[in-house]
Design a protein around this nucleic acid. Sequence first.
DNA 1: TCGCGCCAAAGGTATGACTTATTCAAGACG
DNA 2: CGTCTTGAATAAGTCATACCTTTGGCGCGA
Lengths: 231, 231
Amino acid sequence: MEIQGLPGKLLAELGPAIASGELAEGAVLRIEELETRFGVSRTVVREAVRILESMRLVASKRRVGITVQPRRDWDVFDPLVIRWRLAGADRPAQLRSLGSLRVAVEPAAAALAAQYASPDDCRELSSLAVELTVTARAADLTAFLRHDIAFHATVLRASGNEMFAHLGDTVGAVLTGRTEHKLMPHQPRAYAVQLHREVAEAICAGAPERAEQAMRTIVTGAMQELAAELG
Amino acid sequence: MEIQGLPGKLLAELGPAIASGELAEGAVLRIEELETRFGVSRTVVREAVRILESMRLVASKRRVGITVQPRRDWDVFDPLVIRWRLAGADRPAQLRSLGSLRVAVEPAAAALAAQYASPDDCRELSSLAVELTVTARAADLTAFLRHDIAFHATVLRASGNEMFAHLGDTVGAVLTGRTEHKLMPHQPRAYAVQLHREVAEAICAGAPERAEQAMRTIVTGAMQELAAELG
DNA sequence: TCGCGCCAAAGGTATGACTTATTCAAGACG
DNA sequence: CGTCTTGAATAAGTCATACCTTTGGCGCGA
């Protein structure tokens, strides 16, 4: 868990409960209730609630209590919120949202990377592309996933845009979830691997158009698989 | 300020100070120091620090204190972080990042909106397009800005993607900043207004390609103006 | 029936005591 | 002389309590 100490424990309970809808919009908590329920002091409860409040999952008002806010107010870009939603009943909706976001962002990031990638980025991408090819052939899904995550994170980072770069972890979470969930029986598709090589090559060659196009094919493909899987 | 009470006051001081680099990476604060500096109790200081910690602007360690974290760790999608950076020395970098993000996201959102917009969304977009035309002609920059923000927010919302929808406020902040900063002397460009009409029309007509293309022209145009202005 | 004012409930703040982790340095031992 | 151990000082973390402030709702009276 990202947040440390006792407040972290509370968050680890309350966050997922809210994200999954178990604590529905409008539900009201009271500080005292949480104190006894978790056997901690007011200090701890208040700090945890403050954090939930800063994510806009809850709002606290005098004489009323701590109220769970409607979904549309949630800070859906907060990494913890994303993780909590991915872990619960909201998982399909969250995956769809993230899928669309990837379709929008990753091709743009690839294009920028083709313009701004450093020699080191380029080396890393080439190396990762090779690893992807090898591990795919060997049907080593664990290693493949690790390199796949690193590949996408590297492209996002190489774009030079800090906001894109920060989506690396989130994309990683999506990829991890996909592998775990489908428990992919067969090895990754050769075509997808080929596209990753194409992206790496285009970026290293400084060809934004090609990089963008190849990346777009990757993420729209992922989006379609996702749509098929979720119905 | 988004966060209420005394902790909000602290955040309003500390957030911008960190975002602007005034409190540089590695700078150390102590709770007691903040207590006396702001004349508040530990409770308040701790809650404020917890929030900064959840944004990853600082990390707090025993026997060390509260340390300002390196930029790359910051939660750059947090609305408050964005606002603080826009208000300070990081403004150009933040604008560039947001510009790229808009170029990536808004065309995709427009395409999705063309598929999923409700009749109400469509009505609103058409109405806003008219308002844009009128206020542009009248050179009423305040009203124009208000409608421009509403227009982009509506497109993002109509995409049906909650994550896109949440970027509405941020885009609004960028547009506001642009108007205030340049203190636009002349009326908005007729060409840009025309493009907004085109977007509204394409969305209402259910034409994703056209909507996406028109929106892309708008945001890349904005990006170029931005690049020109920032050098 | 409507409006005004009072009260109680719940969060917000302040404070002091105590706990725990961590760094740094002094001292012991090889 | 260097390294390892141990201990003390420091600063955050937690707890319990008291008190302040806001505000929603109830009851009283017009």
